[in-house]
């Protein structure tokens, strides 16, 4: 349930923030839905449920925000899997968590850019890719840190409570 609440809030935040952030911002490009999806694997006991959750969130994201049906469905599953694998190799301290977030944002941007170029949606422009990727770090790292703090506080109370 916690995962779903976080995702719904992040999903709505994505739309609300879009009004108040410059369309070609050099500093702030929020992708809270992706951050929440990568982060929420800790709330799932079964892999299968987590994969379905990432896929469905991605498809909804596509329908509402991007008009590229199934692209984010696939991307979110990949990112969820990578996030889960990464978290197995790091300790859950805040700084390692932030390093993981930076890597995940970088991988997400690279993957989505490569796919969008292959399918002909975008043209190859490395400086555009770099500017978008760099602009994605600040806001999303802050958001993931916020999620980490909330989770840290929450898990201290309910460490055994896993809902799926």
């Amino acid at each position: 349930m916690y995962a779903i609440i976080i995702t719904i809030i992040s999903f709505l935040l994505e739309g609300i923030f879009s009004f108040y952030i410059s369309i070609f911002s050099h500093f702030w490009l929020p992708i809270p839905t992706l951050i929440s999806v990568c982060f929420c694997h800790v709330y799932f006991l079964r892999n299968k449920n987590y994969i379905w959750y990432t896929f469905l969130t991605g498809v909804l994201y596509d329908i509402v925000y991007t008009n590229t049906l199934f692209l984010h469905g696939i991307l979110f599953v990949c990112m969820g899997y990578i996030g889960k694998k990464m978290s197995q190799f790091i300790s859950h301290t805040w700084y390692q968590f932030l390093v993981m977030t930076i890597l995940l944002i970088g991988i997400y941007r690279l993957l989505s850019y490569i796919i969008l170029i292959i399918i002909g949606y975008l043209h190859f422009n490395p400086s555009f890719f770099l500017s978008i990727t760099l602009a994605s770090f600040l806001w999303n790292i802050t958001y993931s840190f916020l999620l980490y703090v909330i989770d840290h506080f929450y898990l201290k109370k309910f460490t055994t409570k896993r809902l799926f």
Binding site: G15, S18, F19, I23, I31, Y65, T66, N67, T68, Y113
Partner: peptide, 15 residues
């Protein structure tokens, strides 16, 4: 009126 914009970077769309 605009309900939402996509500011993900790649997709220049509004709804």
């Amino acid at each position: 009126s605009v309900i939402t914009r996509n500011i993900d970077g790649w997709y220049q769309t509004i709804t």
